[in-house]
């Protein structure tokens, strides 16, 4: 039912294709890359795209095509894991808060509101400034930044689900809270969670690029789309092509996740069934 609907959604399928290509690109980076992304070649600095360097070279003579290919690894890694962290924290916080209610719920949700009131990037920069910029801290920072969205969604679903009679029936049978939450409540809030997760993947790719652009993401010389773009920025006047390709990669990946997210929303929204 779900798959049939989803497969008939052309926009979603485009998104799936784009994402799949992205994942393949990351998985087969060593095969696809024509050069070592880290090899510096002083003789070929800032070249225009050519047969040898398809996307041209950067100011150190590194092959931009290979750097963009390898960059997909870091971008996907960070977006995937930061969304996983956010989902995990958000589900735990939202479910506890919504299920038990009371002043705890109030307190937790106000904290979530406080986190949400900061612009995402600013907060991530703040957290990274405290923790220090490295790959796992970027994951953690973005994870924390996106947690409130998940917590809110889960809490909302839990609030309505915990009043359902099948939850009361389970209580009447003698089941405990943990069993009820894991068996009856969480499985029924997966739909909005999936939608939120796909949308967040897109945001996270963008956020990672921005952080790298600002020098807080993946530490150089490792390539990520953000820092390739950041490096290229200095040479935009001489060699505009340097900025085009990493920018395009970011755009495509974000577009892919957004298309899938929109399609999932359409398919999973019960009001449209």
């Amino acid at each position: 039912m779900f798959w049939k609907k989803f497969l008939h959604n052309p926009i979603g399928m485009i998104g799936v294709v784009v994402i799949t290509l992205n994942i393949l690109m990351a998985a087969f980076a060593p095969v696809l890359a024509t050069h070592n992304p880290l090899t510096i070649n002083v003789a070929q600095q800032s070249e225009e795209p050519s047969a040898q360097h398809w996307f041209g070279t950067d100011e150190f003579g590194r092959d931009i095509y290979s750097r963009v290919i390898y960059g997909s690894r870091i971008s996907l890694y960070i977006s995937l894991f930061s969304v996983l962290v956010a989902t995990f924290l958000g589900v735990a916080i939202g479910a506890t808060s919504g299920y038990y209610g009371g002043w705890m719920d109030n307190l937790i949700m106000r904290v979530m509101d406080a986190i949400m009131s900061f612009p995402a990037i600013l907060l991530a920069i703040g957290i990274l400034a405290v923790l220090g910029p490295n790959l796992s801290n970027v994951v953690l920072a973005l994870g924390i930044v996106y947690t409130p969205r998940f917590a809110r969604i889960v809490r909302g679903s839990v609030l309505s689900l915990k009043e359902k009679e099948f939850v009361e029936a389970s209580k009447a049978i003698g089941n405990g809270d943990a069993y009820i939450i894991f068996r009856h409540i969480l499985p029924n809030c997966t739909a909005p969670l999936i939608v939120q997760a796909t949308a967040s993947l897109a945001y996270a790719i963008l956020a990672e690029s921005m952080l790298s652009f600002l020098g807080l993401g993946a530490p150089p010389p490792a390539p990520s789309w953000g820092n390739i773009l950041s490096d290229a920025r200095n040479f935009m006047m001489d060699n505009a092509m340097m900025t085009v390709f990493p920018g395009l990669a970011i755009t495509l990946a974000v577009l892919g996740f957004n298309l899938v997210g929109d399609a999932l929303r359409d398919v999973l929204d019960p009001r449209l069934k």
Partner: peptide
Amino acid sequence: MRKLRSDMQIIFQDPWSSLNPR
């Protein structure tokens, strides 16, 4: 109380919301 629960059961009004759809 949990040990006593099996002794007393409830049947609900709405057969649509009283069964977990999954």
